[in-house]
Simulated scan of single mutants.
Amino acid sequence: MDIRVQQEPFDLGCEAAGFAEKTSASGAVVTFTGIVRNTPEGTLEYMDIEHYPGMTEAALGQIATDALTKWSLEDAMIIHRYGKIRVGEMIMMVATAARHRKDAFEAAEFLMDFLKSRAPFWKKEVSRDGAGWVAAREEDEDALTRWQQ
């Protein structure tokens, strides 16, 4: 299990290849990468993401451990950035490896849903028009209900 919270950008190709190379018993590797998207108005300059070191890594580690327990995973990885991240830059990556694709896909979705709604990150959107904190979205909260079984 690899959990990283970092300020610097990461190389998606290198990270995915390195993760896949470590998996000898898996027939499926699933990756997802989140990218900072612009606002509908096209005015977003960057997101400023804050976190509490130590607490954030522990929370992400627990989420990954939950995924490893719930699905037959060989491995899981979470990379999440903080600081000033511009439109079009990668903000996070999730990777899961399992014997079968169903476990790998479901575990990756589980991790993404929890990262979006429960990971202790605070996001501020900074645009040409000003700045504001990103509020929780109802559809993100609703996505969690399918995992609460």
Rank of each mutant, 00 (worst) to 15 (best):
D113C: 04
A104L: 05
D2H: 09
N38I: 05
A95Y: 03
T31P: 01
V126W: 00
I3Y: 08
M77N: 02
Y46V: 01
R128C: 11
L12Q: 14
S26G: 09
D113Q: 05
W122I: 07
K70Q: 15
I3M: 07
L68C: 09
Y82S: 03
K123N: 08
L111G: 01
S72I: 00
G13V: 12
A131W: 08
G61L: 05
S72G: 11
A119G: 05
E106F: 04
S24H: 14
S72D: 14
I85Y: 01
A67S: 08
I3S: 06
I78T: 07
A16F: 15
H100V: 06
A119V: 04
L111M: 08
R86S: 07
D2Y: 06
R137A: 10
M77T: 06
F114V: 02
F32R: 08
R128Q: 15
Y82I: 13
G54P: 04
D142S: 10
E45R: 12
A16E: 10
G130V: 07
P40D: 14
D66F: 07
F110I: 02
V87A: 01
R4E: 06
E109M: 11
A17K: 15
M90W: 14
R4W: 04
D113F: 03
M92L: 15
A136V: 12
I78Q: 02
R86C: 05
F105K: 02
D66A: 14
Y52Q: 06
I85K: 01
D11H: 12
I63M: 15
Q6P: 03
R86H: 14
D129S: 00
V134C: 04
W147E: 01
W133L: 12
A20C: 14
K124D: 04
A104I: 03
D2S: 06
E8F: 06
M93Q: 13
